[in-house]
């Protein structure tokens, strides 16, 4: 059988790698954890609500337990009292997992440069995507989510160990 690539595609067959399919699946069904800290959590809820409808991007299945989630959206300011809890939640999530720091406070402490707030959630857990804003509007978070999807698609879990 001498079949060219073009002929295969013409028959509805595509060629890809296992990794690509795997990552395509992962990025298209992100399950975020229900983890609202402060003001940003309200906009995060807005993202799920009808107008912005994050279901269009496959990330509407919010889970109440870290054991079923693969994304934490750190939505709000992270206090010194909450930081150990966040660390623990992160450790309870199964691999692969991603972290999105939503808003100024989660990214760098925001306007609260003081004793009570950890100056950036990245001091506690590794952060993949930072979304600026105070609070970021739901479309900004969706943009962050799409950037994360690009990042996930580019990851190579089989050829490289997951960090």
């Amino acid at each position: 059988m001498n079949v060219t690539l073009d002929q295969l595609v013409g028959h509805g067959i595509i060629l890809t790698s296992v990794e690509d399919v795997l990552q395509w699946g992962r990025k298209s069904a992100i399950w975020p954890m229900i983890f609202g800290l402060a003001c940003c959590a309200i906009e995060m809820m807005g993202m799920v609500a009808p107008r912005f409808d994050v279901a269009r991007f496959g990330a509407e299945v919010f889970r109440g337990t870290p054991r079923q989630s693969d994304l934490i959206i750190i939505a709000g300011r992270l206090s010194v009292k909450m930081a150990p809890v966040l660390r623990r939640l992160y450790e309870q999530m199964p691999e692969p997992k991603w972290v999105l720091a939503m808003g100024a406070c989660a990214s760098c402490g925001g306007v609260f440069n003081n004793y009570a707030i950890v100056q950036g959630a990245d001091k506690v857990v590794p952060v993949d995507i930072y979304v600026p804003g105070c609070p970021p509007s739901p479309d900004a978070v969706i943009f962050g989510l799409m950037e994360l999807q690009k990042k996930i698609q580019a990851q190579r879990p089989l050829s490289q160990p997951v960090a």
């Binding site: 402060a38 010194v80 009292k81 909450m82 609260f112 440069n113 003081n114 004793y115 707030i117």
Partner: peptide, 21 residues
């Protein structure tokens, strides 16, 4: 207290108008 932000202390370090934020 899991969201204790120190808003009162921060306000005391800003001018009256700035503290609105």
């Amino acid at each position: 207290g899991y969201l204790h932000t120190g808003i009162e202390k921060t306000a005391e370090n800003l001018t009256w108008q700035q503290a609105v934020v």
